[in-house]
Structures are given as structure tokens and as C-alpha cells.
Design a protein around this nucleic acid. Structure first.
Lengths: 352, 352
DNA sequence: CTGAAAGCGCTAACAG
DNA sequence: CTGTTAGCGCTTTCAG
């Protein structure tokens, strides 16, 4: 404790970028203490306006940027949000699905607008627990998850651990995390109603009814059938997950078996566009023989062949809402689940 | 220095998450010093295998995660890579373009595989200088930029500042950063050659020839025309950027002016699929009257109407190569530019 | 209004 | 093999 300042400094072995400017440097140059610099840079009113401006300008001209690790360490918090994209080997829907990708873009925008960084990671749905790491380790102040899948319980557990968590998906009973999602029940209903109005009577439903979102859409579908006086036998559910290839196979098989139907209700635009060629192959024209409705309204749904009727999800708004909800949670406030309205976009694929 | 341990601890005002486990905690529980814990957790051979395992298991069972800020601060480095998506108001191509989005996915995978985090940000192309902030502030160990646009000089400047930087784009003369990109010249050539073989003679080129990548594709296009004995008048260049709406307008105008052509070479699949309806509107059938070739081979190019012939960019590989190159730079080694082979995928849109 | 000093959670000499 | 100790770059009492 009172040893003479001998020897070489310990210093880490790390290469320590040499020219890296730090507060001490600009303090020295400005002829003030680091405390003052810190205060000035943080806009504290405890420094005279003059010094504050002088220091701010100096820092800017020197291109100084604060060391975020040090700041975070000292403040014991940070401004980065972890966005995790679970990938589920079973349903095969992963980051490459255009819808999820556009959600990422939307989140990037919303987060940037509010001055936050976005840390993106893909996590195997089977080990979603690890998602909390970025929070536990102080890397992120909270987590936004794109997709709920079958992970309801795991998500609840995360929330119980106190992880600020917002999930894109359906609102479920006994849910202890915050969900933000489209109105899946409504989406399912409006797609079906539209089809019924176009005279369709025998339906094929494409999706993964074991996930909450698809299940809700299916329920909406069935409600609408019932209201039209159609029994459950009016709909054939094909549990193909979000796997386009599988959708093709299954629909093909149905056709080969001679099963007849005049409408396809799909849980994603990718699924919907994927089966169109199969229908054609079996001599069914879209929309003449079979009307097709997708879900999401990804950008090129309008360029599909034929242009796809679909249920539009409010992607841009979704990002904003999820971020808002997360920040509420982070602030310790309650964030009720949010359900966003969806909208039927009618194009050719259903106009028979 | 020898004051009695008086007074309340200063402590930050920050709410400091209470239960947050730290090394000291597990050290106490294990009955060792934090140094030992640190060593054990970092797999140092300086601790006995026994203690190492004991500590590792304890930490795991307690769900302890190391504080990354502290570690980074001490080590003076970190494991996160900043991925920036410049958005150019002029060309209008931004994060929502499926190609860029899939690139993001590819990078996420490659980065995860190598144990790195991915920090995503969108930056206005006009102020690309700010991209270095995440590096300067010690938040990221380097930067991967998706898209080169018109920023060659700014990128050079970043590189000069010593920022480890890898850019998806074309290799340019006097380039001081590392670029990774598809073979744009080759791509332009193979698209054109194919079209010429299908009997096309009057071309429309859609893109932004002022960006290096598109310029190279155009050059390849023109080379191929020349080799086929066609003069430069055989091609009409429509500088529409990456704006689908604008592409529609411009192509429509051409048609109204009575300009005739039998092939469209587009710089993205989005552009290519966008103009098909316009052609039809003016009585041109694709591919019968006009053959169309896109670029990128985004996933649903095969679902387009008609299925789109296009130049496939090696997205998955792109991610891996960019990450590799960046890590080379970070390690202080030289990373030569890389050009990745592209491939023509022939589908219906060009088969006349 | 400004400076001195303590300490955020971790790693790495350096000594035992 | 393990503990002690000195910081990494910053913010914030507390004292002037």
C-alpha cells in the first residue's frame, strides 16, 4: 500500500489500441479534471456553460467517443437491446423468412429512434434459457424475441427470473411476459369470410396449428365456417409448419388422393405462393379453381403469380410497439400485452 | 489511503440490479479467491483440474454469467462486431430489401459460429463517418458494412483511421479497406450472354450505374454485347436506383414512347419482378415478348410470375467470408479483397 | 463551479 | 497451484 511506484506497469497483455483517446486526454488538453469533462459531456448543469461548450467542442473536434464498457460498468446499466430470433428445427422457420427479416428491420429503426443499440442473435428454440445471458451478463437491458413458437413456458420462466422481455406472438392465458402480436383470430376470420364470400366451400389450412399464432388463426377460420353454416369437415388442416417444401408435398399428395378443395388459407405468404405451382401442376388454376390467401403481406406478395391476397401484419408499427413495451418493462412499469390490428389485402389470387 | 472505512459508499444512483451474481459471490461460496474463479472460468491451466471443475459447475448451477463490460474494460477488447447497413436516400435501397436482409441472416450465422456478437445499426450514407463510433468507443472490434454505394472515399477514410473494416461490394482501385463481393462483371456477362443466346437484341438495363457494383454489371453487359457484335445502342440504361416504383414508371414511359426492346437486365430481383406487370399492361408477355433476368436470387425469385431467371449471389458464403476477412484485419493481418463466384439460375422468365 | 478519490466487476502480474 | 493487488475508463459523492 505504500510501496514505491516501482517496476513496469502490470497492464494487460491485450494490444490496447494505442491512440485511443480517453477522457483523461481531453481533460489534460482542456486543462481541467476528468470529473469536469465527464460532467460537461453529460450536459450537467454543474459546469459553467462556457467550460461545457469548450469541452464539448474539443471532444468533438478530437473525435473523442466515450468508452461504453467503462460507462456501463460504472453506471451498471446499458443501452443495448438484445433481439433474439429463435429458430425452431421442427417448424423450419428461421431467420431467412422474409417476414421475420422485415421485423428485424422494423426493430432496428424503432430502436435507433430511441437511441438504443440492437444486438441480434439466433438461438435454438430448445435452449431458449440461454437468451437471458445477454441480460444476466449486463450486455443488454432487455430482450425482444421474434416469435413465440412452442416456448410459452420457457418464456414465462425467463420473465420470472426478472428478465425484461417482450415477445412477438399471441397473448396466452397465464402469460407472465409481455407479448405484442397481430390480431390472429381476426386475421383468420377475415381471410375466411372473404373466401366464403367468393363462393369457396372446401378449405385447406396450411400452417402449424400447434403454435399459438397459427392456432388462433385456425380458430378464427373455424368460427367463420361455423357462422356460415359449414361444419368442421369443410376444412382440411395440413400441419406443415412453415416449411414451403413440405407444403408443396402435402398439397400434392392431397391432390393425388383426389381430395378436392376450392380454397387455401396459408399462415404465411411463403407457404401460399409455394403451393400455387403444385396446384397448377394438377390442373387447378388460381384463382379460378382454387382461391389462395396468404398471411403477412411481405413486400413481394404483390409480385407473386398471381398477386397474392393476404392478411397484412403491421410490421413497422410492430417494431415501435415492441420497443415501447420493452422500455416500460425496463423502467419497472407494467406492460400489458398488445394486439395490433391486421388488414385483408385483396389481390388476384382469391378473386374467382 | 489510510482513512478509516467510514461513511456511506458512494455508489452510483443507478438501480443496480440486486440479485446480480458476480464473481465475488461464487468465490465466496466456493471458498476461494476471485482470481481463482476467474482463472477457472477462463480455463486456465494454473488451477487444479479439480477446483476448476468444481467452480465451473458451481457457476453453471448458479446461472452465473460474467459481466461483459467489466471484462471488456479490463481486457481492452471485446467480441462484438458492428454490422452497419447504410441507407441511401437517393437509391432508396434500404434494410427492407430481401437481399440485404438475407445477408444479415448469413452474417448472424457466421458470427455466431465464431463466437461473436452482432450489433446491427442503420446509418445514413451521408454520415458514414459515424460508423467508426462503435469501434472508437470500444463497443465493437470491427465493422462490417453491407453495401458500398457511393461511399468509397468515406470508407477509405475509415480504414485510414485504423478501423478494421470489411465492406460488401466491388473491389475498386485505390481501395484501402477490404471488400468482399460477388463477381459483378461476370454476373453481368452471364446474364447478357444467356439473353443473347435466347435471341434478344434490344436491351433495357435497370439499376444504378453510379454504384460500383451496378457499374461493373453494366460493364459486363456491354462487353458481352460488343462481343456479340452489338453496339452500345443495343442497350438502354435506366438509372432507377433500386427503387421498384421508379423502375415501373420508367419502363412504362419507355413503352409509351414506343421504344421497343426484347430483354430486361435488372440489378435486383425486386426490380425485375416489379416491371413484369408493367410490361403486361402494355401488351408484352414475359418471356415471349420480353425476356427478364434479375439479380441476387432471393428466395422467392422462384415463386415469381413467371419464375425468375437470375444471377445468384452466394449469400451464405458471403457471411462466412466477410467475417473471416474482418477477423484477419482485427488480428492485424492483411485481408485481400475477395470476389465470390456467382451463378446464373435459369428459370422461365428468360426462356423464349 | 471544480477537483480528488473511490469503486463498478473483472484479469493478470507478482509473490507466496 | 492460489491469493493479493493494481488498475481498465468512467461517474459521482464529498470537500473545497
Amino acid at each position: 500500500m505504500s510501496l514505491p511506484p516501482t517496476g513496469p506497469e502490470p497492464g494487460p497483455a491485450a494490444p490496447a489500441r494505442p491512440g485511443r483517446l480517453q477522457m483523461a486526454d481531453i481533460a489534460r488538453i482542456a486543462g481541467v479534471s476528468v470529473a469536469t469533462v465527464s460532467r460537461a459531456l453529460n450536459g450537467s448543469t454543474e459546469v459553467s456553460a462556457a467550460t461545457r461548450q469548450r469541452i464539448t467542442e474539443l471532444a468533438r473536434s478530437l473525435n473523442y467517443t466515450i468508452n461504453v464498457s467503462a460507462k456501463n460498468l460504472r453506471l451498471r446499466h446499458n443501452r443495448t437491446v438484445a433481439v433474439v430470433i429463435p429458430y425452431d428445427r421442427q417448424t423450419r422457420l428461421h431467420v431467412s423468412d422474409p417476414f421475420f427479416l422485415s421485423m428485424l428491420g422494423s426493430l432496428a429503426d424503432a430502436l435507433t429512434d430511441r437511441g438504443h443499440d440492437m444486438l441480434v442473435s439466433r438461438i435454438d428454440a430448445d435452449q431458449l434459457e440461454t437468451a437471458s445471458q445477454s441480460y444476466d451478463s449486463g450486455t443488454a437491458l432487455g430482450i425482444i424475441m421474434i416469435g413465440q413458437w412452442h416456448s410459452h413456458e420457457q418464456l414465462n420462466r425467463l420473465a420470472d427470473q426478472g428478465v425484461p422481455l417482450v415477445v412477438w406472438g399471441a397473448q396466452l392465458p397465464q402469460q407472465r411476459y409481455c407479448s405484442v402480436g397481430g390480431d390472429n383470430l381476426g386475421g383468420g376470420r377475415m381471410a375466411t369470410r372473404h373466401l366464403i364470400e367468393r363462393g369457396c366451400r372446401r378449405f385447406v389450412f396450411l400452417g402449424d396449428p400447434t403454435t399459438p399464432e397459427s392456432a388462433l388463426r385456425l380458430r378464427g377460420h373455424q368460427q367463420e365456417l361455423a357462422e356460415a353454416g359449414l361444419g368442421p369437415e369443410a376444412c382440411r388442416v395440413l400441419a406443415v409448419g412453415f416449411d414451403a417444401a413440405r407444403a408443396r408435398t402435402e398439397v400434392g399428395r392431397l391432390l393425388e388422393q383426389g381430395v378436392d378443395f376450392d380454397a387455401v388459407v396459408a399462415c404465411s405468404d411463403v407457404l401460399a405462393t409455394a403451393v400455387v405451382p403444385v396446384l397448377r401442376l394438377h390442373g387447378r388454376e388460381v384463382p379460378r379453381d382454387v382461391a389462395v390467401v396468404g398471411y403477412d403481406d411481405i413486400e413481394w406478395a404483390s409480385h407473386a403469380d398471381p398477386p397474392l391476397t393476404t392478411v397484412r401484419q403491421p410490421v413497422a408499427r410492430a417494431g415501435v410497439e415492441m420497443v415501447e413495451a420493452l422500455l416500460e418493462r425496463v423502467a419497472g412499469r407494467d406492460a400489458p400485452p398488445r394486439t395490433l390490428p391486421v388488414e385483408l389485402v385483396v389481390r388476384q389470387s382469391s378473386m374467382r
